[in-house]
Design a protein around this nucleic acid. Structure first.
Lengths: 229, 229
DNA sequence: TTACTTTTTTGAGGAGTTTTCGATGAAGTC
DNA sequence: GACTTCATCGAAAACTCCTCAAAAAAGTAA
């Protein structure tokens, strides 16, 4: 099947369900990651940056809603709840905690897939919005490509993640810890040196004159901001 | 109830359901618009720009999915489907046509409201800018920017924190110790010299004539006040 | 597996800002 | 005139930011 390039993290303690979802999703071109409990889910979300989570509420080590809350402290990745609990209050609690959708087991695979498409459509804004431009800089989030004066620039994965977050909040100041949390994960919140080195490398690749940045502006004492017209 | 300022367009041919939703939603501070068929829905969406649609699929004049398609040609307003049809294919078709969620009747009102919150949360992600203005001074707390006569002024972190607190209480007197506590922390409550130096620096940056302050006014013996219109 | 390349992380130095603090003077009050 | 409050200046101390370079880790190909 066609490759969507999208990565789904399936979180469920039942191996059978994980395998079922893996088969269905892989057939449609998604890449599937798996986690069997809450801690694995949090870990995988931090390290692997999936494009969407399909999360069972009944996990052995912690409540699914708690997983949602923890992730929402630093990430907006779409979360689709899959649960046997059909009580209205359970749904309300999960949705208000930051989940994007709630599907009750047993579920139809076609509906699940349709709802995954909705969640992803939501989170990756339409093709128009995926291209960011200022002066001679062009960032195409859809194609994962960056151009300076029309020439493609090769960025490392970390550098790309960094500019992606900046583009998504173009014009706004992002604090050091916001950037560190979103690019490296919450554990790196205070590693500001890491951020500086990467900003420096990024500037060397995309700024006409890295000494006097035109695109990635330093907000002293606070963070960085990607210029916007 | 508190006013959300958000407008919901309820599309259903049954008057009883419209009235039920109007009551529930109004009680929560939403403004409710109504449409009884597809054409009214399209019309109302174009003219009234609601923040979200709650759309029944079974309409007398056209299929609900067709309404979704027509709206999606030009608008991304969140659309939440409400339908008696529980077949999986119906859901998939509606969601793929561009609907954001699908709820089967009979539905729980709390779940509906939670899903409305999700849809709105999704579609209005940007933090609104709280902008403060007096004469030639402009403080944008959302973007963390300060302008004087249209020119951006670079403030140090402390200076910005200071003006932020003043803006948040614009028009009111803030005592020395209030300002010191909020900007430097409770331990600095009595360091009024610190405050004076920073107010002075701030004035030099934002006042047309720092000798005769127009924005940051001294309240002798008490504290400082940011002027308000 | 091993060897090789690329990427990420850590370390150290220097330039530049920002914060803090003491000194001084002006203005108002008793 | 003595006392308090407020504003400003300038210098020391503390901190932030940037860069280069080396070490460690991760990825890739035979």
């Amino acid at each position: 099947m066609s490759d969507t390039g999208l990565r789904v993290l399936v979180v469920d303690d039942e191996k059978a369900i994980r395998r079922y979802l893996r088969t269905s999703l892989t057939a449609l071109g998604y890449e599937v990651l798996e986690a069997a409990n809450g801690n694995e889910a949090l870990q995988a979300t931090m390290t692997d940056h999936p494009d969407i989570l399909v999360l069972d509420l009944g996990l052995p080590d912690m409540d699914g809603v708690e997983v949602v809350r923890r992730i929402r402290e630093w990430s907006n990745v779409p979360i689709l709840i899959l649960s046997v609990r059909d009580r209205e209050d359970d749904k309300v609690v999960a949705l208000d905690a930051g989940a994007d959708d709630y599907l009750t087991k047993p579920f139809g695979i076609k509906e699940l897939l349709a709802r995954i498409r909705v969640a992803i459509r939501h989170h990756t804004p339409g093709q128009q919005d995926t291209v960011f431009e200022v002066e001679d800089l062009r960032v195409d989030l859809g194609k994962r490509e960056v151009f300076v004066q029309g020439n493609r620039v090769a960025l490392t994965p970390t550098e790309y993640d960094l500019i992606k977050v900046l583009v998504q909040h173009a014009g706004r100041v992002l604090t050091h810890s916001q950037l560190l949390r979103q690019v490296w994960g919450p554990a790196y919140e205070n590693e500001s040196h890491l951020l500086r080195v990467n900003i420096s490398n990024l500037r060397r690749k995309i700024e006409p004159n890295p000494d006097q940045p035109r695109y990635i502006l330093t907000e002293p004492g606070v963070g960085y901001r990607l210029r916007e017209d």
